[in-house]
């Protein structure tokens, strides 16, 4: 419990830092939101008076630190601001777009884990045989292939040629398959290699030998004695890969035209829609922190030696 409190404390600090940095970066990028937004609204170059009025209205004329403080003050009260484009409250936008991204991230991690663990285990157990080599080559391909390219390949193959899956959009499970595979492949490849090397290392441990000496069948050795320890680095990796998934989601969502956080963010950046950029960043940061906390908690479940309360041994 105490551990959780401590972790929440440090997470808050991390989030605070993340928002501050994005706030600064967004304002450093060239392009004035007032002009961009007004040009969009009015369909022509806005007058200087309109620009000043917009800045005053949105508080953009204040010094940057003060703007940030206002924003963070509002956030603490549960107000993430409104989009400059009148699309409504940022919070509502996030709530509308988040499920699609969660769906995509979850499905791709699932794909990755479902492929990586069996492939890695088989690869490790049959080390040095053709099975191992084939799985290694596939893993190498998976790592090397860029998301957007694989995405288009899958669209051509799975959607256009075979016509099994829809080309783009979201909503049904069928819509999810191609993006999830696209995003999951790279991760699966990395994880396969990690599962393989981690398990190989664990299989060398004396306790595996000792279990073999007690007459355990090989399969039981791997599953019951080696795999759990071997999964520790894999779990950490899955947690860290979430960052990769969210980054990849930006690309994959654009490729497959899925309305998700990635697309929302990309659009907001192009349109200089500061409140939305801030909102998405905060949300993604929060997800990341939560997943990493979950990873550490999973550690304790997997390895009884890990003590969370005492700060570890």
């Amino acid at each position: 419990m105490q551990y959780l409190l401590r972790r929440f404390g440090s997470s808050a600090v991390v989030l605070f830092g993340v928002t501050m940095i994005t706030y600064g970066l967004v304002h450093l990028t060239p392009g004035d939101p007032a002009r961009t937004v007004l040009a969009e609204r009015q369909g022509q170059q806005p007058s200087e008076a309109d620009v000043q009025a917009f800045r005053a209205e949105e508080g953009l004329d204040e010094p940057l630190p003060l703007q940030y403080l206002h924003w963070i003050g509002d956030v603490l009260q549960g107000d993430l601001g409104r989009s400059y484009y009148g699309d409504g409250a940022v919070l509502d936008l996030l709530i509308a777009y988040l499920p699609n991204t969660i769906e995509l991230a979850g499905a791709s991690i699932l794909v990755a884990v479902a492929v990586a663990i069996p492939a890695g285990v088989v690869s490790a157990v049959y080390r040095g045989t053709w099975i191992d080599y084939v799985s290694q080559v596939i893993a190498l391909l998976g790592v090397s292939m860029p998301n957007f390219w694989l995405g288009y390949l899958l669209i051509i193959g799975g959607a256009l040629r075979l016509g099994i899956f829809p080309v783009y959009g979201a909503g049904t499970v069928a819509h999810l398959v191609l993006p999830a595979v696209t995003l999951g492949t790279g991760m699966a490849a990395v994880l396969t290699r990690l599962v393989r090397s981690s398990l190989l290392e664990t299989l060398e441990e004396p306790y595996v030998d000792a279990a073999r000496a007690r007459g355990l069948p090989e399969r039981a050795l791997v599953v019951a004695h080696a795999l759990r320890t071997a999964m520790l680095p894999v779990v950490t990796m899955i947690g860290l890969q979430l960052g990769y998934v969210l980054g990849g989601a930006v690309v994959v969502e654009v490729v497959f035209q899925r309305p998700g956080l990635g697309m929302l963010l990309v659009d907001a950046v192009f349109a200089r829609d500061f409140p939305v950029i801030q909102g998405v960043t905060l949300l993604v940061g929060t997800c990341f922190v939560i997943v990493n906390l979950g990873t550490d908690l999973a550690y304790q479940r997997l390895d009884p030696r890990v003590s969370l309360a005492g700060g570890g041994t």
């Binding site: 441990e205 004396p206 306790y207 595996v208 030998d209 000792a210 279990a211 073999r212 000496a213 007690r214 007459g215 355990l216 019951a224 004695h225 759990r228 320890t229 997997l302 390895d303 009884p304 030696r305």
Partner: peptide, 20 residues
Amino acid sequence: RATQISTVFQDPAATLTPTR
């Protein structure tokens, strides 16, 4: 090995599976 021949190894701490 399961029934008739048992082995005890050198490093006792390392020969027990840490997760069980």
